[in-house]
Design a protein around this nucleic acid. Sequence first.
DNA 1: ACCGCGATGTATCGCCGCGATACATCGAGC
DNA 2: GCTCGATGTATCGCGGCGATACATCGCGGT
Lengths: 195, 195
Amino acid sequence: MLELAVLGLLHESPLHGYELRQRLKATLGTFRAFSYGSLYPTLRRMRDAGWIAEDEGNAEVVADAPALTGRRGKVVYKLTAEGKEKLTELLAEAGPSAWEDETFGVHFAFFAQTDPEVRVRILEGRRSRLEERREGVRATLARTRARLDSYTLQLQEHGLESVDREVRWLTELIETERSKAPARRTPSRPKTARS
Amino acid sequence: MLELAVLGLLHESPLHGYELRQRLKATLGTFRAFSYGSLYPTLRRMRDAGWIAEDEGNAEVVADAPALTGRRGKVVYKLTAEGKEKLTELLAEAGPSAWEDETFGVHFAFFAQTDPEVRVRILEGRRSRLEERREGVRATLARTRARLDSYTLQLQEHGLESVDREVRWLTELIETERSKAPARRTPSRPKTARS
DNA sequence: ACCGCGATGTATCGCCGCGATACATCGAGC
DNA sequence: GCTCGATGTATCGCGGCGATACATCGCGGT
């Protein structure tokens, strides 16, 4: 969700749309771009919801250009108290919504602001989500393999390897995360064998 | 685009929505799912455009259940002549639209039905698209690296590696493709499949 | 003999995000 | 003096998604 990303970014410092977009690119990299076609409407929505406020102050810049049709100046946004609250709430979210394809990366990008326990739960959730998908695809593939041409097959196998790779990455991250944290009475099973 | 996938699948045999969805899963695997929320509206659109036709014939099944509200039977779709034409047209598409993230996989899945020269051009286009993105992200990363926390950094680097991996995959495929084809000379005029 | 459940099957709704496009300002370099 | 690319705000249509609703069918369990 773009909202979390905007909240997370604005938590560091007030920004205007264009900067927000640059920061989004710098923060999410290959993972996601977020076009203006998403950004501006989202900003509007968030402002209407009261999570962010437009920080006027560059109004003088406008002064020298009088009655120009829709003269627009920079619009700087900053977090409101409700916005901070919402951010905290979203950051604490560790359920399914946080391990979806599109969402996970955003949550991960703001892990520095996330509670360590929540981090592990998101990581594990994401991993099982991926493992489920992998098994589903593997099952289907086993059933239909014979009927598929070589290109389709290669696509499937490449995809499966990609998923595998991400699972391995997540496993590493989980281990690092666990070793960083003082071995708190682990509520989840220490070494869940194969899933 | 879902349309290409549907056309490609129906080219093999007539199918109804549910089967189409199963085939979609079996064909695209991890790459994409395509929910019913996309499928049915698309089917409607394609029918209205005249690319596919509803193959009635299971109407008798309905007979024994008289005035049931919205009694629905299977709706089998098959390709029309225009649909076949459209499929040929889409399969010949080798321009930017074919190397987009969401589109590429669908094109690839139907490579068996695609002209060998077009295959190579799609593969190469996809690869440069990915390389461009990678360089862009690398540049941004070099500029901002110092300011990023370790999680953001890890996300970026994982993403970069994924892109790298796909580039390598594509390179292999291109080589295989070239060695399969009798080393034809530089394609007669790029035809620049703009659009 | 009955029931429930999961697979089969069609369909819609609201939301989100994308790419394209338009418009406007500004500094740098030719 | 001019164009060009970066900075900047904004909208539009559309394609896809997840959730949801509804209906039928065959199977296994009790």
